[in-house]
Design a protein around this nucleic acid. Structure first.
Length: 261
DNA sequence: CGATTTTGACCGGCGC
DNA sequence: GCGCCGGTCAAAATCG
């Protein structure tokens, strides 16, 4: 796998030294310099954002390419494997949407199955994948292939909604929740606002089917929003930056005050 | 008090 | 036919 997804050598120093206490330069000159520096940083950030979007895109498309490669090269091997280990293979086929591989299986099980993996905090013991929909838990089982319990959810937003999902911790990495969605929602999304930003934060990896529907919604607007939030929090947490803003505002106030003196 | 979660029981498909 | 296993049901418990 190609891990060189681009040059990540960008570095931003948002906690810039504003040298407000430099007595040799006037506050206006200092602010001018800072303005120029901020513009440079802004350009840097814009480049970073572009690069991030590119990386995000390649991360999304790479698994699809791998799957396509895999399915064409190993079509025969897959069918043999499916015959010998039918049950397990069917699960994986469902996950990967190779629906034609299992003609005996009832139709409803193989329709619109998608999987997402959500990285959570290790301290987080709940098996909750917040995707904006309302889910009602109706069962929990410990499966043979995974020591972590599998939770079964039904969409409770609409009583007639047939969508179900299974959530289970990954055996390889317990901090990763694997959510398998079955079916299609027959109602609009409850609220776009309720899709939590942490989904971006939590390194969502998806298979093609789900990513097409879900990631498209969140990766552009939410990603940008999230980056802006990170920038804002970084800036506001910097005492020098807030001091500079305060100084600039007070300076402006004094300018306006002067005529009245 | 209604909604939700928990959890043991039950059911059906599949492999041997 | 039997046992295993995943999925679902439903009563009890819990929560807000």
């Amino acid at each position: 796998m190609d891990t060189s997804l681009g040059d990540n050598s960008f570095s931003i120093d948002l906690n810039t030294n504003l040298s407000l206490h430099n007595t040799n330069t006037s506050p206006r000159e200092t602010l001018g310099e800072e303005l120029i520096r901020m513009r440079k940083e802004n350009k840097k950030l814009a480049r970073m954002l572009t690069k991030l979007c590119e990386n995000n895109h390649s991360l999304k498309t790479h698994p699809i390419e791998l799957l396509q490669k895999y399915s064409t090269h190993n079509e025969e091997d897959n069918s043999n494997l499916l015959l010998s280990r039918k049950r397990k293979a069917e699960e994986e086929c469902c996950v990967n949407n190779f629906e034609e591989a299992s003609p005996k299986r009832p139709r409803e099980i193989t329709t619109n199955v998608s999987t997402i993996c959500v990285k959570t905090n290790r301290s987080d013991q709940t098996s909750v994948v917040n995707d904006g929909y309302n889910w009602r838990k109706y069962g929990q089982k410990v499966t043979s292939d995974n020591p972590y319990p599998r939770a079964y959810f039904k969409c409770s937003f609409a009583p007639t909604c047939p969508v179900k999902k299974k959530v289970q911790k990954s055996i390889e990495d317990p901090s990763i929740l694997v959510a398998v969605y079955e079916g299609e929602h027959n109602h609009p999304h409850p609220s776009q606002a309720e899709i939590t930003v942490p989904l971006i934060n939590q390194d969502v990896t998806t298979n093609p089917t789900f990513s097409n529907k879900f990631m498209e919604d969140i990766d552009t607007n939410s990603l940008q929003q999230h980056l802006v939030q990170q920038m804002a929090s970084s800036l506001t947490s910097s005492p020098t930056f807030t001091a500079a803003v305060a100084a600039a505002i007070s300076g402006k106030i004094f300018e306006y005050d002067l005529p009245f003196k």
